[in-house]
Design a protein around this nucleic acid. Structure first.
Lengths: 258, 258
DNA sequence: GCGCACAGTTTACACCGTTTACGGTTTACA
DNA sequence: TGTAAACCGTAAACGGTGTAAACTGTGCGC
């Protein structure tokens, strides 16, 4: 680790400009306008090419904004969980999950930016940022906390298919394994399964490829949760959890603050 | 029903032009190029504004192409199923499902066009076309065929939440209910659940938001199927089905013919 | 054979991402 | 303290996009 200097004046200024870029971008998104270099620059009272001092391309702007959106939204999911006692691990996980769903429905464009953007080019900034996707961080952490409390059964690592064994043994998202013994890594597979199911419902709902009435009621979302919770040892707790989730779904969805 | 005239010469010509538009568009997509009015027009040896005689906007072109891509791809899924005996309902369903997954992985841009495009504006052409999404047609039909053969248990309509009851009783996609008695509509809910899970894995894989090793092996896809098949009465049949699916996954993925 | 609907053109506009060359400021260093 | 370099912004321009308007010829229907 190098010794960290105190940030110089220019560096602070530069950081502030980055903040303003993100702020202007999110504002554009929130207003339903297109996210473009020129629009962002215009809102900052600056010409478009000036932004190239901060991002190398439009795609990099998108990635930057997506990352910051994810970060901010995740704070919301965490805050939602904090309404519950610290030792209600199951409740916290489900509340954050529901907050995620509500946020996605209320902010479809932002959801698309963060979660439905191809990460094809292996070496782009995006890959690196995905590595520390903050919402993934949060949910993983909550699930590990839950498991360390109730120790629900997870698949044995040696029973997993080779590719999965590799993926959970040496994951691309290192943080997922923090303080998880090698023979406990089966939990990560369970996490991946859960994330896949959650993503499926939410994406389908956000993109509108589902009966509008079902979307509005959130019944498919609830059904997905109900289908999954037994796998993390929460079958008995489901009635209570379902009531909690339904209460949250009943609240009006509101766009996130910029 | 009005009496249908024989198509006049002009009408045939016009239809041919539509075909050429779609052909040029798919060609562009297949080559990895951007889909743009000008590019399509250029490939047809025509100027861009000419296309406005056929589509009202760029979005409408996209919708048109997406619909045709879906149609063509669905033919492939059906053909894959036809390699199996007609009465192997379970096999046919799983084979088509696997073909869908393989197609999506091999043609990510096309998948995005068809399945990850918001259908926000309620009254756009897209809504109407979604109504008869052909891949949905195929899978629904195969699932109903399976059910009419093995009559696996499905939820009773009166046990479903109100919004779901409405959705399955009076669905937006009428064809889904063809010849399905009102008290058998619980099957549609099962279908929606299955489609949600399938969509989740495939979209996650296509967009690369998953460990590349897991994507390459298809283990998450298989896991999703394994998790779902008991709900359509195929628990006992799973070993055979898994072998079939694995055999298909082992085949090299190839882009669909234009 | 006349008239008109249609399919195509040219031109133009407003927007986009991106590059280049150029000026000021601000910082860092001799 | 003076100077050189690094930085931040500009204006101008290029090639691309979707889209609107006016205009032209050709072929079909009556």
């Amino acid at each position: 680790m190098g010794t960290l200097r105190e940030p110089t004046r220019r560096e602070r200024q530069r950081e502030a400009t980055y903040d303003e870029i993100v702020r202007a971008s999110r504002q554009l998104l929130a207003e339903g306008a297109e996210l473009s270099l020129r629009a962002v620059a215009g809102r900052m009272g600056v010409t478009a090419p000036a932004l190239y001092r901060y991002v190398a391309s439009y795609q990099e702007l998108v990635d930057l904004v997506a990352f910051e959106i994810d970060k901010a939204a995740t704070e919301g999911f965490r805050a939602a969980a904090d309404a519950l006692p610290e030792d209600d691990y199951a409740g916290r996980l489900l509340v954050s999950t529901t907050a995620f769903r509500q946020w996605a429905i209320a902010n479809p464009r932002e959801f698309g930016l963060v979660f439905a953007n191809p990460v094809a080019d292996a070496d782009c900034i995006r890959r690196e940022m995905l590595t520390l996707a903050t919402s993934g961080h949060l949910l993983t952490g909550q699930m590990r906390a839950l498991w360390q409390h109730n120790h629900h059964p997870v698949p044995a690592v040696e029973d997993l298919p080779p590719s999965v064994r590799d993926a959970v043994t040496d994951p691309l998202i290192p943080a997922e394994t923090e303080g998880l013994a090698p023979d406990e890594r089966g939990l990560i597979w369970v996490y991946m399964q859960g994330w896949t199911q959650l993503y499926g419902v939410v994406a389908l709902e956000v993109f509108g490829h589902m009966d509008p009435r079902v979307i509005a009621s959130g019944e498919m979302f609830i059904d997905t949760l109900r289908n999954f919770v037994p796998r993390i040892g929460l079958a008995d707790d489901w009635p209570r959890l379902e009531a909690m989730v339904r209460a949250l779904l009943a609240q009006p969805v509101t766009a996130a603050a910029g």
